[in-house]
Amino acid sequence: MAIKRSVSGRIFDSANVIFMLLMIFVTLYPFWHVLAASFSDSGLLLRHTGALFWPEGFSLSAYEHVLQNQRIFTGYLNTIFVVVAGTALNVLMTSLGAYVLSRKKFAMRRVLTIAIVFTMYFSGGMIPRYIVINNYLHLGNSLWALILPGLVSTWNLIVMRTAFFGVPESIEESARLDGANDFVILFRVILPTIMSTVAVIILFYAVGHWNAWFDAALFLRKKEKYPLQLVLREILILSSTESMTNDVDFVDKEAIGESIKYATIIVTTLPVICIYPFLQKYFVKGVMIGAVKG
């Protein structure tokens, strides 16, 4: 390949690298802003307007405050449970669903697909969903209320099914000749060939669980059960001073330090960022296995 590189190709490569460096700067900036703010002095930060390239003053007090907060740690444990258990079940269910919907000889395929896509658009709304989950399944105040209602994301199901269509039928047919049933074909033959998609699906579900807070806010009534994002969200709300409105009954709220909300974001996000490169390596490996097979 290297021999063939033309002048225009080299110009393109350099431009591309420069563009990517720009991308890095532009997308890294918000994170840098948060990082700088988290090390700032709350008072100075309040006065500051505009872009932040370096902490205003320097103070670790925000971190001291955040790390004292017991709920950050219980939040971590709850979130890890939901991410691990939830993602495992998600991937299992989504694989099953995607496999079923990719069977060209399956009579119910079209009906099922439409019925499933239909649910992306029509729902009964918040109240009946709550009644089903809380009153009938008794999942209220349980972490399972954050896992079971979202077992299959239709969007991810469709993405995975699209990948299944890309698997050459010859592979499947030879497995069938060897006497493999559908379970063996799905888990031993098809999934390994599309590991890159599986990796993406895992990532989507895991990050989805990591970022989710709304169901937790609806179903959990004990703060010990809160996932990390809900703890973070409460802190963000706590740190904003209410503007004055004409409510009949207003309550003066004392704001917590500006820098604390930024420190909380760092404490809740940093672990993902540290873990991600390792995961990515694993994903790349998975991708290569897929490529060799394909």
Partner: peptide, 12 residues
Amino acid sequence: PTIGQETEQFNL
């Protein structure tokens, strides 16, 4: 209820 979601939780 969760701070910021009091009304939703109450209604539900």
